[in-house]
Design a protein around this nucleic acid. Structure first.
Lengths: 207, 207, 207, 207
DNA sequence: AATGAATGAGCCTTCATTCAT
DNA sequence: TATGAATGAAGGCTCATTCAT
């Protein structure tokens, strides 16, 4: 809980930086890294190019900062959810609920995130994607812990390794998110969290 | 089932085209669309740039042709699997098996496919991704039919819409594929097909 | 012999100006005009850029002021040497000695001076070099006077015009200075003044 | 005496390269490295920028190639002069004559050469000047050999080390060249070679 | 008066595409 | 028909200079 007092100047700087990142996020998410010019970002953020280069060493640096910052944000929010007290089932319910919401409120970033974590982007020369995948794997380990404890105390059946279950759960959440993204009216989100968990909890074959 | 006789000249043309596409696939999948020059592709394929432009209108056209052709290939192979006779469970088993294998034998393309279907790539200005997603949705409908009939004849529990189940299954297959792609030794593939189906069929909570 | 009393404020101004010029000299001589930013100069001099621009209209102006001031300094010192009483030979001895010393104590400037007077630098658009060369020519006239009087009173042989002799002498002094600059241990300076004069006075061919 | 047959294509390439270098030489020598844009060079040489970049990796590379090639040219021509048969005195006469002529026929390059070898230019990051100075030193060693043998067989008085004499001679030649460059009508060149040698051979003081 | 953040013109360089041979 | 040299538009980035505080 940082409480450092920032000078007016510093606060101003930070605000400017956020504005630049916001403009960049919107553009990158809309057109892709290579189809956005630094000029455009500067214009959208209403700064001169030179000013933008005072904040970020180059285009790649800007992109990297953008993605990593957003990752931090997501990570800490979802980690908090997982660490809240409750049974494993409750934790998963909260996680599915929390992840879905967080994503739906940050669609522009989600598109970037999926691009970096799932596809090949090569937006950045030296593997930003690798950094992001590592962080994502680390986060999945935390999610896996819930499955692990659930299996240990017999609340969950031992049908796959905890990590695999974590991977499976997340992939379904993302898939349903994309479904909703593409056709919000056909696949309304509100009911999905339960659907997802039903798939997981009940299994397809009748008992 | 076209059986048109091709002249020697035409067959030669086709072979050249395939060589160009093969070179392009390798490069695009390795470095990303924007980090590959037409020059490079021509060199790798051992043609002159001008020759390459005789076959494809421009870089985008080449990329589009490449992706769509590969999609055709995958689609028809997997459709065939789904249409083979058998119970719904057998069909799904064959599908998971077939999809996994097909993917593992065509890794370069899979990377492109995931990039285009999951992330935002904007490799191509005018929504190649939209075309691909549409085709993918259409294919998912076929997969959904299996779930639908399974639900109808009570082999499967009705825990989600058939289409949702199709989406969920595919997303898990892809996720496990990525898992294996990133750490083949830690997540060996052979056992995965069953794991995936177990998750689906048995459900997480004990009966 | 200006004796104007400067107010404290004016003296302070002058001191600041000198500090800026000193920082600039060091940087320009080390990296060349075009590889030094005004930013750098301001930082090294520990002033804000804006302050620097209060003293000099622009980068060129700063450079010009720097070079001209240093030239003034050198010129007046060496003129003094030439005007000191003594025979022509003594004058030349003192000149060689004085010039060598002065140069060795102001290496950073010498590099700039040689660049401006010998090479093409185009550091400055509107011919600073021309100004400098003109001043240098004027100075050489003074040196030539020594040769002229030496020739007139038969102390020197009339083997070339006085001005040519002045040019020749200076070029040798500079050449030896560069020699020493590049390999101080191999071409130690102390003995050089005499060597230079020997070349001049004795001639190469035996009498 | 290379006699390699060049294909028409190769000869054409070489000619283009020479045209680019010629345009660059003229511009660099007229305005200085930093005041010439690649655009300008391309225009003057009547090529598109892209074509120019097919021949040279970048602006620095072009400049380096230009300077080094010209150096080669000068070096080999003057070395040939020094190696021609004759007494030491004849060799020096030929050298002064040859150097003067060569320089006067290649004024644009001389300006570059002096800038790189005498001044600080920092046109190029990684010390082209150092390369050039090394080559110049090596050449001076050859010139020094003439003085050495002259001293050994008593044709020359031993008033300075051979290398120092070489440095002195060259510096005077250059100085006189500059003199002529600045005021051709006042310091006509034809008589200079003898003047220079007179200064060297006769000495200033009467016997 | 002093500051230094903001500006944006201009430069180097790349690469998709064309077209003469 | 196949070639690949030539093209030049467009983008990333720097840095001298200004001006509001």
């Amino acid at each position: 809980m940082k409480k450092t007092k920032l000078s007016r100047r510093e606060r101003e700087k930070l605000r400017q930086r956020q504005e630049m990142l916001a403009a960049a996020l919107e553009l990158f998410s809309e057109k892709g890294y290579h189809n956005v010019t630094v000029q455009e970002i500067a214009e959208k953020a209403e700064f001169a190019i030179g000013t933008l280069y005072k904040f970020f060493q180059n285009k790649e640096d800007l992109y990297t900062a953008l993605v990593l910052e957003q990752c931090d944000n997501f990570e800490s929010a979802l980690t908090k959810v997982l660490e809240a007290p409750g049974t494993e089932i409750e934790k998963l319910q909260n996680y599915v609920q929390g992840r879905s919401e967080k994503f739906r409120n940050n669609l522009p970033f989600v598109r970037l995130f999926l691009a970096e974590s799932k596809g090949i982007t090569f937006n950045i020369k030296a593997g930003l994607d690798e950094t992001i995948r590592k962080r994502y794997r680390d986060f999945l380990e935390k999610l896996a812990l819930v499955f692990e404890s659930g299996i240990r105390n017999k609340r969950f059946r031992n049908i796959a390794s905890p990590y695999q279950l974590a991977v499976a759960l997340d992939s379904i959440i993302d898939a349903f998110l994309l479904l909703w993204l593409e056709a919000p009216e056909r696949y309304p989100y509100p009911e999905d969290p339960d659907t997802i968990l039903d798939i997981f909890f009940k299994g397809l074959t009748p008992p």
